[in-house]
Design a binder for these strands. Structure first.
Lengths: 200, 200
DNA sequence: CGCACTATTTATAAATA
DNA sequence: TTATTTATAAATAGTGC
């Protein structure tokens, strides 16, 4: 579209390139979302900006989950030709090295239905949030903004309370919630493992 | 495009859904490839057809590699990135035909029906939040609580910014840079293979 | 300097062969 | 039914404010 026809060649000027990226990225995200919604299917998307910033999109499940699912399919159907498949799969399913939350997530995926439930819950919440957060930009009056802020403060308070409560039984509860996951890795990974999967 | 405006709702008829999927899939792949080529960057895409068939696309590296790289990046970045932000924004802006009602514009012309529309949107959002709120009770680890809290804080900050803008107190949160447009390299060239790295 | 406008190219929903 | 064609909605490159 536009005044001229698109030329399939790298845009050399960095500035123009970045501008092009920004616009097109949004379009692709929009269309991907349309596809996911209209067809009620899973779509996962990852894009690196010329500057290296990552933008990800996933419809229902997390990008990781979608990928893992796609890979499982590929094992039997060779849909995703991948040289490092073996390696990657391994990394995804039994990683021990820290920094690879994916691994732990995959482990959970493979072993735990319990964790799955929890993830599902988080995912649901995330869905709501996805609808919610962007709208913040649309706030058009100070009153509305204040109302929103108030709402958030309220939630924040609840969170703090939950946190406080949890701190009382920390460690115990935590370990019992994720029996399928290697607890040592979990501990080593810090607090991001589970979380990451749900929001990344 | 087409004779009628797109309706963001699942297509119930299986056949129509599949047809829609096929067409749109190709477009998304094409545009993803354009982005990857013109910007010389990495893009990874996974799509499940209504029937479950997987379609993947990746520009340079494999989908897996790209994902792993993206994850490593994200691990060190904000814990709660919001992939769909721009996307949803656009979604909300979709009613472009009857004027611009993007967030910023809304702020500028927070009058008339546009304001009402926004309020309606806000109402919907809050309703969704109510759905999300109860889940707070399900938080089972301090880490999750902290994550949530962080998320809320982030939102709170945005609210504050919105308020600031609304109050005309802008000027302490600006930074973006949008250099002038520079165009060249518009020599004619033929299009060719688009799906080089696409696997079906 | 960032945003908005607009002439054109694209992408498509329908209609049609 | 599947492939084209047509009429319109979308996306967007270049330009203007």
């Amino acid at each position: 579209m536009g005044r001229n026809k698109l030329v399939m060649k790298k845009i050399e000027d960095p500035i123009s390139r970045q501008q092009f990226y920004s616009k097109r990225k949004d379009t692709i995200l929009k269309k991907s979302n349309e596809l996911a919604v209209l067809c009620d299917t899973d779509v996962a998307l990852l894009m690196f900006s010329p500057a290296g910033q990552v933008t990800s999109y996933s419809s229902k499940e997390s990008v990781e989950d979608i990928m893992v699912r796609a890979m499982n399919k590929s094992v039997n159907q060779r849909l995703i030709p991948n040289p490092n498949e073996q390696l990657l799969m391994q990394s995804l399913t039994q990683s021990k090295s820290e920094g690879k939350m994916v691994g732990k997530i995959a482990i959970a995926e493979a072993h735990g239905k319990k964790l799955n439930e929890l993830k599902e819950t988080l995912r649901e919440a995330q869905q709501k949030i996805r609808y919610y957060k962007p709208q913040v930009e649309n706030i058009s009056s100070v009153q509305e903004a204040e109302a929103y802020a108030q709402f958030l403060r309220s939630n924040m308070e609840q969170i703090q309370q939950s946190k406080a409560k949890l701190l009382g039984v920390q460690g115990f509860l935590q370990r019992n919630e994720y029996p399928a996951v290697n607890t040592e890795d979990m501990a080593a990974a810090g607090n991001e493992a589970l979380y990451l999967n749900a929001y990344w």
